[in-house]
């Protein structure tokens, strides 16, 4: 992109197909994940009669809800070209905390501190926000790369979880959390509604607010953002807190959804969330993508996980297949990035 050549856009008809091609190329990042989704859906629908049913669609939605809630915040972080590896651990500790502050049945052997439901929820939210602030502090004030900072936080949050439950399992959470996590309204699970609302909220913030624009600009070119007089550290710190709070909400509802709070309960959600964001087409280099991409990514993952259960293959092979399909999606992601760069050259 050195001395980018001068542009005089000719209006001749001869150019039109070419410009369409250019547009398609530059939209590759959004088109490719969507095509992946359609192909997967088509394949499983053809392979199994039980896959493409309304019931199963409901299953898929429910299955991706917790990942979806966590992925909202992660999308902000990845758009800034940072990473948050502590999301699953923070989700776990927040879920455990909300149970810790709730009166458990007598057979649960945890020295917990019962409180009113609203207080338990607020304390749990405060905890995840605090952990997010520590991430933000390490990243922006001390200057630890987010990869390392959140790796440490992953251990810290797991450690707090371990101390709170000491190997035991808690079952009770405040009524509001139980309702949102494990009941339905009009046939639609509350957790799906919460996930949809949070995704929508994330989308609105990223697209229509000044903060959202700053997130994209910081991710697009951090140096330029700084030289434009943006408070880059404040923005980076904010996304780390947003990520932790989204993870916390996902953790609380997840605990209600699973019906128990225990250690290492959310471990698979770390890779699932990152995969959802990146498979959807949000660039790991920042500045490109968004919640729309994350939603597509969530569905790719959801359809894949669910669909593999509907087709009759060796269950030990499924993990490998899942890995290969994710790899393919990532390869497409990187190529889409390159195509775009070439177009912008």
């Amino acid at each position: 992109m050195t001395s980018g050549e001068s542009v005089t856009v000719p209006a001749s008809d001869r150019k039109r197909p070419h410009r369409l091609a250019v547009m398609l190329r530059s939209q590759m990042r959004n088109i490719a994940p969507f095509l992946t989704l359609i192909c997967l859906f088509g394949f499983f629908a053809a392979a199994s009669p039980s896959f493409a049913t309304l019931d199963n669609l409901g299953n898929i939605l429910t299955q991706i809800s917790v990942t979806g809630i966590i992925a909202v915040g992660l999308t902000f972080v990845i758009l800034c070209a940072e990473i948050d590896l502590s999301i699953a651990a923070i989700a776990n500790v927040t879920g455990i905390a909300v149970a810790y502050f709730t009166l458990q049945e007598s057979y649960v052997n945890i020295a917990n501190v019962p409180m009113p439901g609203w207080a338990a929820i607020l304390l749990a939210l405060a905890l995840c926000a605090l952990l997010g602030l520590v991430n933000a502090f390490g990243l922006t004030v001390i200057g630890i790369p987010s990869f390392i900072m959140t790796l440490a936080m992953m251990q810290i949050a797991a450690g707090i979880s371990a101390l709170l439950v000491r190997g035991q399992i808690a079952y009770k959470v405040p009524p509001l959390v139980t309702t949102l996590g494990s009941t339905s309204i009009g046939g639609i699970p509350w957790i799906v509604i919460v996930a949809a609302l949070m995704l929508l909220g994330g989308h609105l913030v990223l697209t229509y607010t000044r903060f959202g624009r700053y997130v994209y600009m910081v991710g697009g070119n951090r140096e330029a953002a700084e030289y434009s007089g943006l408070n880059v550290k404040l923005i980076l710190g904010s996304v780390m807190v947003i990520s932790a709070v989204c993870a916390g909400v996902g953790g609380m509802l997840g605990v209600a959804h699973f019906g128990s709070a225990q250690q290492n309960e959310f471990d698979t959600y770390l890779l699932d969330s990152i995969a959802a964001v990146v498979v959807g087409g949000t660039s790991l280099f920042g500045g490109r993508g968004g919640i729309g991409n994350t939603i597509v990514g969530l569905f790719v993952l959801g359809v894949l996980n669910n669909g593999l259960d509907h087709v009759n293959i060796d269950s030990f092979l499924k993990i490998l297949i899942r890995g290969l399909i994710l790899l393919a999606a990532l390869v497409i992601n990187v190529y889409a990035q390159r195509l775009r760069e070439r177009t912008a050259d």
Binding site: M217, N221, E223, A224, S228, G229, L230, R288, R340, A344
Partner: peptide
């Protein structure tokens, strides 16, 4: 921060365009 300088009414254009602009 640079935000403070901007609010104080200072504008800045660095020597390299790459550091100043969002090409995409």
């Amino acid at each position: 921060s640079t935000a403070g300088a901007r609010r104080a009414g200072i504008a800045f254009v660095p020597e390299s365009r790459r550091d100043m602009l969002f090409h995409q």
